[in-house]
Simulated assay, not measured.
Amino acid sequence: MSRVALFLDRDGVLNIDHGYISRVEDFEPVEGIFEALRSAAARGYSLIVVTNQSGIGRGYFTEQDYEALEAHIQALFAANGVDLTATYHCPHHPDAGCDCRKPKPGMILKAAREYNIDLARSTMIGDKPSDIAAAQHAGVGKAVLVTSSKNIGSIISQL
C-alpha cells in the first residue's frame, strides 16, 4: 500500500528564511510548526522535506555545514514530537542544470520511489513558485503556496 506525503520546503516553511541558513543559531522554527506537523503525521502523512540549498554550490557554506545543521533540525523536531520521514536537498548552483533543483521534480520523484509515495494523494507546501512548479511537474495532487510564515500552521491543519 502506498503512503501519502506532505512535502515541505525548508526555509520559509519550517523556519524563518533569513537567507542561506547554515548555522544552528540562525535556524528559527516557524511559530506553530511542531503542532501542525504532529497533527499531519497523526492523520497519516509522511513528512518529507525537499529543499534547494544553493549556498553550498555558491560556496557560502559547505556540505558538512549543511549536514551539521540538518542533524540539529532532525533532533529539534524529534524533541518536539515530530518525526521527519526524510530530507532531500539540492546542493547545486542554480546554473548547474541538475535534475534535483526545484522547479525540477527530482527530489520529489526520488522520495516517491524510496518511500512508496502516492503523489496524486500527496501535498506540497512551499513559499516560492518553484516549489509549486516542482510539485506540479512531479504529479503531486495538491500544492499550496504560503505567503506568510504566520499562516503555515493553519494551512497544514486544514489538509
Rank of each mutant, 00 (worst) to 15 (best):
M1H: 05
V4T: 15
V4Q: 15
F7R: 00
F7T: 03
F7E: 04
L8S: 04
G12F: 04
G12N: 05
G12T: 11
G12P: 09
L14H: 11
I21H: 08
I21N: 09
V24L: 06
E25R: 14
E25D: 15
D26G: 14
F27M: 12
E28Y: 14
E31L: 12
G32W: 03
I33K: 08
A36V: 05
R38Y: 02
R38D: 00
S39T: 07
A41P: 02
A41C: 03
A41V: 02
A42C: 00
A42N: 08
S46L: 14
I48W: 07
V49C: 12
T51V: 07
T51A: 12
N52Y: 03
N52A: 02
Q53A: 09
Q53L: 09
Q53T: 11
Q53Y: 06
S54I: 03
G55C: 11
G55Q: 10
I56M: 07
G57T: 05
R58N: 01
R58Y: 05
G59I: 08
G59A: 09
Y60P: 05
Y60W: 11
E63W: 11
E63C: 05
D65R: 12
E67Q: 14
A68R: 12
E70M: 12
E70P: 00
E70I: 00
H72T: 12
I73N: 11
I73T: 14
A75S: 13
L76D: 13
F77S: 10
A78H: 14
N80I: 05
N80R: 14
G81F: 02
V82R: 08
V82Y: 08
D83E: 15
D83L: 13
A86Y: 04
Y88T: 00
H89M: 13
C90D: 10
C90P: 02
P91T: 01
H92A: 03
H92Y: 02
P94R: 00
G97Q: 07
C98N: 02
R101Q: 03
K102Q: 00
P103L: 07
M107W: 00
I108H: 01
I108F: 01
L109N: 06
K110M: 07
A111L: 02
A112I: 04
E114G: 04
I117Q: 03
I117G: 02
L119G: 09
L119P: 13
L119F: 12
R121I: 01
R121C: 08
R121P: 01
S122Q: 04
T123A: 05
T123Y: 01
G126V: 04
D127P: 02
K128H: 13
K128L: 07
K128F: 04
P129K: 11
S130D: 13
D131A: 06
D131C: 04
D131T: 11
I132K: 07
I132F: 11
A133G: 00
A133C: 00
A133D: 12
A135K: 09
G139D: 11
G141C: 08
K142W: 00
A143I: 09
L145N: 10
T147Q: 10
S148A: 13
S148M: 08
S149I: 10
K150F: 10
I152L: 10
G153K: 14
I156A: 08
S157Y: 07
Q158S: 15
